[in-house]
Amino acid sequence: MTTVESKAGERAGVARPIRVDKLSTTTRVANGVRVLVVVLYALIALIPIFWMASTAFKSRADVVHIPPRVFIKPNLEGVISLLTDRALLNAGRQKALLASTEEMPWYRRYMIERGMDITGVSPFVGRLKNSLIIAGVSTLAAVGLGTLAAYAFSRYRVPGKGDLLFFILSTRMLPAVVVTIPIFLMYRQVHLHDTHIGLILLYTVFNLSFSVWLMKGFFDEIPREYEEAALVDGYTRLQAFRKVVLPNALSGIAATTVFCLIFAWNEYAFSLMLTTEKARTAPPSIVTMLGRGGIEWATIAAGTLVFLIPVVVVTFVLRKNLLRGVTFGAIRQ
């Protein structure tokens, strides 16, 4: 410890490591309280998610059992029901199918044992696919365009810059519900109703204001001298942007991507109004499951769980950049 410290101290002259073994009692108590608060918060935030996840693997009996059961035998009925269409079997047919030596996938057998036969893939699979395409493409577009626009706003003398930025932000000022009806009418006119491209356009426009403002903040934090150094070092403006500015804006881009993706992925009102079948995304579909003859809680929970996965994965992959990105402004250099 001491050797490392003295070496680093000599070179850097700053940022000596804090000695953890010499904290005062008050600091340690304060740290303890902090940890406690964070743990409590984490519990409060995670319990509903845990409950949802466990519900997804509960049998019908377990779902409605009172008092609620925490420890259960995992049941895949909900998950399989989510992804498939099924038909009820009478007892004779069920016996016959179980007795047959016909090769069948494990999930079909699993359902036959529970009195149902799989007849096909459920519409939810297609809607999940729609969600992936629409959220993915619109996020890429919003972040890409937003990054370029924000760079221009940050670096060039754009005429009417302040007004333009305000105008861009103002697209966010009305709640979605207010603008859905005019957009619905417009979309019907131009045949964008219930199309992928329609929702992609809408989500891109909606996210663009956000990504322009967020990315402008990140670009403002990057000293101009970096690009200027690259310019005198023999690079064009575009090369300087690509080789020097973009790598330094990565954390910002990651943060913006996650926020845009979460919006586009979770969006409900527009999708409900502007799509019917072909381009419908997952969020309104989960809700419509409520209505189909008896509430299939396990299926709904499974739908929500599956729905959570992509955002969690992306956030997890980008988490390192995200942490740096969210604390932007706090880091100099």
Partner: peptide, 15 residues
């Protein structure tokens, strides 16, 4: 980039 001149900045501007 075409002037063949080097510039040292006050805060160095190291990438």
């Amino acid at each position: 980039s075409q002037r063949d001149i080097a510039f040292v900045f006050q805060f160095f501007a190291l990438y």
